[in-house]
Design a protein around this nucleic acid. Structure first.
Length: 220
DNA sequence: ATCCCGAGGG
DNA sequence: CCCTCTGGAT
């Protein structure tokens, strides 16, 4: 396992590689970010952004989404994986927000309360609260999990929650949200799932995975 | 542990 | 063709 000190050094290098890492979903209101994030499960941001242009044109608000038929929502989400479940979640989520008295410019600020909404789990709640309200949290998605494991921050079999807890323990709280974005950019554009760029990775000295892979010999 | 499930990339 | 994508609910 990598030491806290070494991991923070590696994280600092990642920060320098992607200084302007940021959320890449398009939205105009907190509700729209929630919608986009629900749609983003096991899907690319690019694909979600393509779909939400028309979706938000037709159903821009909590009320309009709550009043929409599921099949109408599906018309705009069909290009996204898992679209049926997601569309069902969007309508129900809008209905519940309406019942709770939330508008487009306001969402529950409590993580547990947010997670009562269908389609909203731990990761989505962290993303939304961090982006909209700057509430400290680390959303562990596929990228954050992969990078954390390759850098040996946690053992290979660690659960998502264990990864999240370890990251929160190691990273200062005021850097949780920004580090989350940096880790995602690093995972998305450099430490990719398929052909990670170990051959020109500045983190190779910190990375067991990369060193082992280089030793085996990479055929680019 | 398993299901949901389309687009884009390699 | 196969793998991956800012997971969540059962």
């Amino acid at each position: 396992m990598i030491s806290k000190q070494k991991f923070l050094e590696a994280l600092e290098i990642i920060n320098e590689m992607f200084p302007d890492a940021h959320g890449e979903l398009n939205w105009n209101t907190p509700f729209q970010l929630l919608v986009a994030t629900i749609l983003s499960a096991q899907a690319t941001d690019k694909g979600v952004n393509k779909a939400t242009v028309a979706l938000f044109e037709h159903f821009p608000t909590v009320t309009s989404m709550a009043n929409a038929e599921i099949v109408e929502i599906e018309q705009f989400t069909k290009t996204i994986g898992l679209y049926h479940n997601k569309s069902k979640s969007l309508k129900k989520t809008a209905e519940m927000l309406l019942e709770w008295g939330y508008s487009n410019n306001e969402l529950p600020k409590d993580k547990k309360e947010l997670q009562l909404l269908p389609g909203v789990g731990r990761k989505t709640a962290n993303v939304v609260l961090g982006e909209v309200y700057g509430i400290p949290g680390i959303a562990v998605d596929t990228h954050v999990e992969r990078v954390s494991k390759r850098l040996s921050l946690v053992k290979q079999e660690a659960s998502v929650i264990e990864v999240e807890e370890k990251l929160m323990k190691v990273i200062p709280e005021d850097k949780w949200v920004s580090s989350h974005h940096h880790l995602i950019f690093f995972g998305r554009y450099h430490c990719t799932a398929k052909n990670p760029k170990c051959n020109f990775c500045p983190l190779i000295v910190y990375c067991n995975f990369g060193q082992a892979r280089m030793k085996e010999g990479i055929h680019v």
